[in-house]
Amino acid sequence: MFSRFKFITARVYLGFTLLLFMVPIVTSVTGQDFYLDLLTRVLILAIAALSLNLMVGFSGMISLGHAAFIGIGAYCVGIPAYYDIHNGFVHLGLAMVCSAVFALITGAICLRTRGLYFIMITLAFAQMLYFTFVSLDEYGADDGLVIYKRSEFAGLLNIENATTLYYTVLAVLLIFFVLLHRLVQARYGRVIIGSKHNEQRMQALGYNTYKYKLVCYVISGTMAGVAGFFLGNFTNYISPEMMDWTHSSELLFMIVIGGTGGVFSPIIGAAVFLLLEEFLSGITIFWHLIFGLILIAMVLFGKGGVHGLLLRWDEKVTNGAGQ
């Protein structure tokens, strides 16, 4: 599947994936559980970033409400667990169905708008959901819910075990990557990308771009719901704060750091973002200043993110070889 990428880009991504497989081995040998946790978080948010990039990178829809889906997924673990329902298949199924339905309803309205209006209306729906959960006293309202027991998969998988959880998330992330990669390659993907650049042309060609975009929105939302399912399980805690718009903009940062052009790149973006955050926050309580400046610099000067950088490198090498 890397055949489409030129050499260096493919190798770096493949190397990065292998590295991800190595993480639990290294952390268990060195006894550094904390870093396994940190990387599990990276993978979970990478799923969310990957899903958001389908909208932002490929169909040009900038959403400031993507964290709402993460919240839905997490509450689909927390609320059943509150009623002592710990069946993971139920949780995961609920997470996917609920986030898909929310995506379908809000998407149907949001996609009538574009540009700034789309950004603001996705934000509005996320805010409404946020305030809904804030008012749900039974489920902890602002204070959230502690999940005392992680989802159970009938003895098939024990995600209470940190390593198992890590590999499960990694497997899901890679499956989603392959699915999205295929999707973008397929005719469907070409319509979506085409309508990003020239929607009228695609409509003139007879494509109902609204429907295509809506499908895209629902797929993206459902995948983020799965990320939320894992996040709720991972942190053992959920709160409406997970749906805050600042988390949505953090996902956008991950995408831009990785580079919006690639399917794989948001994974790198998530890793860079979270590791940078972890590193800087250990230095000073004023780390947001440095972090903010780095983020601004990345947008202003880091054209195309990591993906863009690698592609340019590839180009140089190929051109060099051609001479």
Partner: peptide, 20 residues
């Protein structure tokens, strides 16, 4: 081999993280 080099790099990075 590039792959080996990457594995080595991976181990090095992880080891540095661990020894922090």
């Amino acid at each position: 081999m590039t792959k080996n080099r990457q594995l080595l790099a991976a181990t090095l990075v992880a080891a540095t993280l661990a020894s922090m």
